[in-house]
């Protein structure tokens, strides 16, 4: 079976519940690092990492600049910064212009992750009310990675998964619990 080195996830409106359920569905000891952009207000405190960490399934933390990406961790992009992946599999942050009206932007994470992890990357688009992440999905496919979208019918907001699916570059459309199940099936290596 193909092995994957990282999973990038983009979520927006309704993302809190989706992320919670996705992580709750993972088996304890899940190893592939998750790297998450959740659109947030620029003034929000970083409660999200704390909230997801409390589930006790993965170690969840806000991504720090220059931090090495490690197995068994989930990383959240800090509010008001873009999150990028460098070639040495560390994070970098920028405050450049918003992309798709968002900072952090899903596209920025997905595009930079794609060129680092190439075919060993999974990109997942969850609930949201904008089109961020659609271009990122295309770039992940161009590098030979694997892509998924949350089933729009069961997403709290269907616009973002629909936009990703409309690119024609989504490999699997699944409900949240099915996404977790699928990820668990990969993690045996």
């Amino acid at each position: 079976m193909k092995t994957y080195d990282a999973i990038v996830i983009g979520s927006s409106a309704g993302g809190l519940h989706a992320l919670k359920n996705l992580i709750k569905g993972l088996k304890p000891g899940f190893r592939i690092p998750l790297i998450i952009v959740q659109h947030l207000s620029p003034h929000s405190e970083n409660y999200l990492a704390h909230f997801l960490d409390q589930l006790g399934i993965l170690k969840v933390k806000e991504a720090d600049e220059r931090e090495k990406i490690k197995q068994g961790f989930a990383y959240i992009a800090p509010p008001n910064f873009h999150l990028l992946i460098e070639a040495d599999q560390t994070f970098s942050l920028t405050v450049e212009e918003k992309v798709n009206y968002a900072r952090p932007a899903i596209d920025v994470l997905f595009e930079t992750a794609a060129s680092v992890y190439r075919e060993r990357l999974i990109g997942i688009i969850l609930t949201g009310a904008n089109h961020d992440g659609a271009n990122g999905v295309k770039v992940i496919k161009a590098y030979g990675g694997f892509t998924m979208a949350q089933n729009p019918a069961t997403a709290e907001s269907d616009i973002m998964p629909k936009a990703a699916i409309a690119t024609g570059k989504i490999d699997k459309i699944l409900d949240i619990n099915e996404i977790s199940y699928f990820l668990n099936s990969l993690n045996n290596s």
Partner: peptide, 9 residues
């Protein structure tokens, strides 16, 4: 400079 940013720009 960090390369990921420069490359994007």
């Amino acid at each position: 400079y960090n390369k990921a940013h420069i490359k994007r720009r």
